[in-house]
Design a protein around this nucleic acid. Sequence first.
DNA 1: TCTCCGATTAGAC
DNA 2: CTAACGGTCTAATCGGAGA
Length: 423
Amino acid sequence: MHSPTRSIALIDCNNFYVSCERIFRPDLQKIPVLVLSNNDGCVVSRSNEAKALGIRMAVPVFQIRDLVSQHKVAVFSSNYVLYADISNRVMATLQYYSPVQEVYSIDETFLELTGFTNINERASAIRDHVMRDIGIPVCVGIGSTKTLAKLANFVAKRHPRSKGVFNFNRLNPFQVNTILKNTPVNEIWGVGRRLTTALNELGILCVFQLRDADIASMRARFGVVMEKTIRELRGESCINLEEQSPAKKQIISSRSFGKSVTDMHDLEDAIAHFVSNAAKKLRDQQSIAGMLQVFIQTDRFRPDQPAYCPCVSLPLILPTSSTIELQRLALVGLKSIFRPGFHYKKAGVTLSAIGDALYYQGDLFAMQTEDRELMKTMDVLNRRFGKGTVKLSQDGARASWKMRQESKSPEYTTNWNEFPICY
DNA sequence: TCTCCGATTAGAC
DNA sequence: CTAACGGTCTAATCGGAGA
């Protein structure tokens, strides 16, 4: 006896950041809209109208300045507080449609729909529900593996006739082949730029050819990931749904500066800020770190200026999650690598050698009790009254290094001071 | 020659 | 007005050091 075909759905929000901005700005519905990366650097989200203008993903904004002004494109700095809040609402709505959910990214979720009847109707209901309650348009792709669900979602997005839902399990083999022949390999999950080039050189241009390639030789040439991808395209599930995300093994907090920084005190302020950011994430997942790295970098796009990108690794004899301890150590590290006279454009910290805090809790020599209590209190206050309510003195007091954010929308849903009121 | 480990690469979003 | 190119994370693989 064989198991029935699985139905895995991938729900993906359309142009997510742009759609978030549009919730509160209905006037932007039919016009081209862009959302930029941190520091207002690159394009990271585009409305369909913006895509139609030929604005490519990840293009630096300064390269499309003329296009933007000519076509009156609406441009936003990224507002992650808003996007995270909207994302949480979407994910919370989706969980009602299946007991098994993997939140894959800020705008994507996998749902196990195996065993439900009327799966396409269920998918349409999901779309309608999210649109009605939250105002975010989504597409649903369904397949017997995660890779096929991803592919189905791509088809749903690209073909308006699908009405936002596409189910591979409803197709006959001929229809499947037709789709796979018309989809270039680079659209497959796990096939990026390098692999696309290599595959094309082998004559593999479309997904159909990849699916029917010889597994043994493809594995020998490209590794296990490729083998899993091919098997998944054939309907053999190799990538599991991960319901709870495992604790991070590495936590990075870094940023490019709005303008270059030369002063040691500005760097200290920035590094202290990055440490408290990273340490907070560490505590949120009940972890402690045994290694701290500090790095500072000059501008990699300025070959005319002297480059200097040092990084120092600082092991902690006693792993900790205390912002106080980590900041102290990070500032020692910064002093050791700082050289005056350079124009620094970016800095950051990495926490690694991450372990379970509970494991160390009984250890007399672990984090000082008073530090632990202080951190707990800080976290509670910041959660209750908003990020940054309580912080250590060196953390982010200076504006000199802050990123450029010239067109950020209000934090409509999370900050009473920015709540939209119509008079 | 083998194994371990840090560094690098490739990919995702 | 000018200058202007993101941030985090994982797994696999590479390559050097030491056994």
